[in-house]
Amino acid sequence: MAKELWLSLPVKDLAKSRQFFAELGFSFHPRHEGSDAMAGLIIGDKQVMVMLVPETTFKQFTSHDIADTERGSEVLISFDAESKEEVDELLAKVDRAGGTIYGKPSDQGWMYGAGFSDLDGHRWNVLYMDESQMPKG
Rank of each mutant, 00 (worst) to 15 (best):
A92P: 06
G121V: 02
R71C: 04
L5Y: 08
S73E: 12
G115V: 00
G44V: 11
E89K: 12
A97W: 02
R31D: 12
E89T: 13
K93V: 04
S63P: 00
Q108H: 15
D36A: 15
G115Y: 03
F116N: 01
G44R: 14
I101N: 12
G25F: 00
T57G: 07
E131S: 09
D36Y: 01
W124Y: 15
L76K: 07
T62E: 01
S8W: 03
K16F: 07
S17T: 13
F79A: 12
V53E: 06
P105H: 01
W124V: 02
F21T: 07
W6E: 06
Q19G: 08
L14D: 08
E4L: 13
N125V: 07
G34Y: 14
K104W: 03
P10K: 04
V50T: 13
A15P: 10
E74H: 02
V53W: 12
K93Y: 01
V87Q: 09
E82P: 05
V94Q: 04
S63K: 15
V50Y: 09
S8A: 08
A97R: 09
G103N: 07
Y102P: 00
N125D: 13
T69C: 09
K104M: 05
L9F: 05
L24M: 02
L41A: 12
E85C: 05
Q108F: 14
E4S: 15
K104L: 05
F61P: 04
S132H: 07
A92E: 11
L52M: 14
L7Y: 14
H122P: 04
G40R: 09
P10C: 08
T69W: 02
L24H: 00
D45T: 14
A67R: 09
S73R: 01
E33C: 07
G115K: 03
S73F: 05
W110L: 06
S27W: 03
L52W: 11
H64T: 00
S132D: 07
L76S: 04
P54L: 11
D120W: 14
K104N: 10
Y128G: 11
A39D: 08
Q60T: 02
I42T: 15
R71S: 14
E55S: 15
D88S: 00
E70I: 01
T57D: 11
F58T: 03
T57P: 08
G103P: 05
L41Q: 09
K46E: 10
K59G: 03
A15W: 04
A2H: 10
E82S: 15
T56D: 14
F58Y: 15
S132Q: 09
G109C: 05
D120Q: 14
L91I: 05
E70N: 12
E70L: 04
E33F: 11
G115E: 00
